[in-house]
Design a protein around this nucleic acid. Sequence first.
DNA 1: TTGTAAGCGTTATCAA
DNA 2: TTGATAACGCTTACAA
Lengths: 325, 325
Amino acid sequence: MPTIKDVALRAGVSVTTVSRVLNNRGYLSEELKKKVYQAMDELHYRPNELARSLSRSKSNLIGLIVPNAAHPFFGELISHIEEYAYNQGYRLLLCNSLLDRKKEAEYIDMLRSSRVDGIILGSHTLEVEDYRHIHLPVVTFDRQISDDIPYISSDNYRGGELATTLLADKGCRKIAHIGGHPHPDLLALKRLDAFKAVAMKRGIAHIEIHTDVDVFHYPQYGPLTARLLEEHPDIDGIFASSDMIAAYALKVCREHGRKIPDDIRIVGYDGVKLTDLFSPSLTTVAQPIPDMARRAVDLIIRQMQGGQVEMEHVFPVELVEGGTA
Amino acid sequence: MPTIKDVALRAGVSVTTVSRVLNNRGYLSEELKKKVYQAMDELHYRPNELARSLSRSKSNLIGLIVPNAAHPFFGELISHIEEYAYNQGYRLLLCNSLLDRKKEAEYIDMLRSSRVDGIILGSHTLEVEDYRHIHLPVVTFDRQISDDIPYISSDNYRGGELATTLLADKGCRKIAHIGGHPHPDLLALKRLDAFKAVAMKRGIAHIEIHTDVDVFHYPQYGPLTARLLEEHPDIDGIFASSDMIAAYALKVCREHGRKIPDDIRIVGYDGVKLTDLFSPSLTTVAQPIPDMARRAVDLIIRQMQGGQVEMEHVFPVELVEGGTA
DNA sequence: TTGTAAGCGTTATCAA
DNA sequence: TTGATAACGCTTACAA
């Protein structure tokens, strides 16, 4: 690959001049510019970003750690983060932690070695202390790690209210919440809080079930829902804390002979594109994923530039009525 | 961040020695190693990968271009590619081309500037010539760009046979194939070829519909399928060239009052995890995504090491019977 | 307006 | 077994 030297040689100027043309810095005669551009073209020159990054101590790389890129919610998140980051001049280094502590710690180390300019954490299985040591712009999704790391979340409580209120308004008398393990740090817990509060206020019987293992291992939600239906045959409403869980609930309910939404009403959470692929479309509480993705990138960039940033970034949710409730 | 110099200073050795310890090269007394490791620990030293990459002229970065990370098939592909690449010591630079020519070309430039060691192309909208200029290990999915760029695909023809034969065996008399635009370079076209051949052989009426725009813009398949049902009310079997299309078909058929699989049988393609989230689970032709992902990474690495590689990598498919056919 | 030279943090060559 | 020192390809004072 040609280097800046080759270009300089060919254009008959110094490397400094080539660098200046490359970065549009300082005063340059049009003529010189032309000569340099031509030399670049002829040599198919591409500046070496590794060298630039090293020299500038800035990589224009953002690290993104998610539990699993194969999960629809994270797929959408990744896609929007990448798109916006790219438009802002950043490249994305993607990591699947698989919710494995060791792997997540390794990834953080790796990203620091890679001199990324910041890390977006869609996955967080470590202790507060481990994140404090990062010393790099960080933003997290759905978890408040400490009071100096900004976090992004949807309005979980409001979402829980919307979903539960809908079930109540539709006449449900006994409702269930199905979710992942209710880790106290996880902001998603607020969906459950709202679920309980609304059910209480409306005088509706309510129960709560959850997994103890990997929240994102979906197949487990099949048996979980099946058991729910067996132990509580009179359930007539389900608030699932993700659309994928809702989809499983829908499936299992049908397999148990329940009509949706007549016998049991189901509301999901997330509002991934996939929801309207089901028949009927899933009723869900939608998060504004593109906005949240954009904010994540902005927060990294702003911190990088030394700006002060707000710590709380709670995005409004919206009830999207499909046909399951 | 501490550098190798700081470590050397603290350990009372030269940077060369530290570098040697870091890379486990040459002869080193145990004592020295210990001293160096200790200094590293104390300083929380992390080698700067940018500098290493520059110095070694090897980045350990793999570029992956996909149409859209939000599409389930690519989500799974990304996830497996990342996991395997990481285990082999490579990091992943992710790009969403959105099937945009200009963007794809830009991404390729960007990846070359980033000095990635190779590029995995899950998206290819450019001309053969554009890919020839890459001068880097490349592997493509589902498209044979030229005879010196290895490609990975599932056994598309066999998959088409399996799907169509199943429909025929189940007694379908008029079947449709729904797919994206049949670009001649796309190996997925073979699914269609097989569909026609089998239908012909079995004496079954068959029609073919497809989009002219972005294959991955799913919502369009709703109206497309609706029109199909209106124009050909006697359709009793559909072979969709992706699971997402199959899901839309399932939905639209139901909305038109058709019972699945009694009135219309539907078979998808890809075998993404999501298929068994539907009720009933989607019947589909499954590609071995993890194996294909792994092969992609291996092919990049092998080419990088100067090894000769096979050009054709066709993976066996498997009919997975859900409840839609 | 252009050029020289030092520096970014490593690795690699050559001596010692 | 260990250490100077020159690359790697770029940016950026500082000079001219």
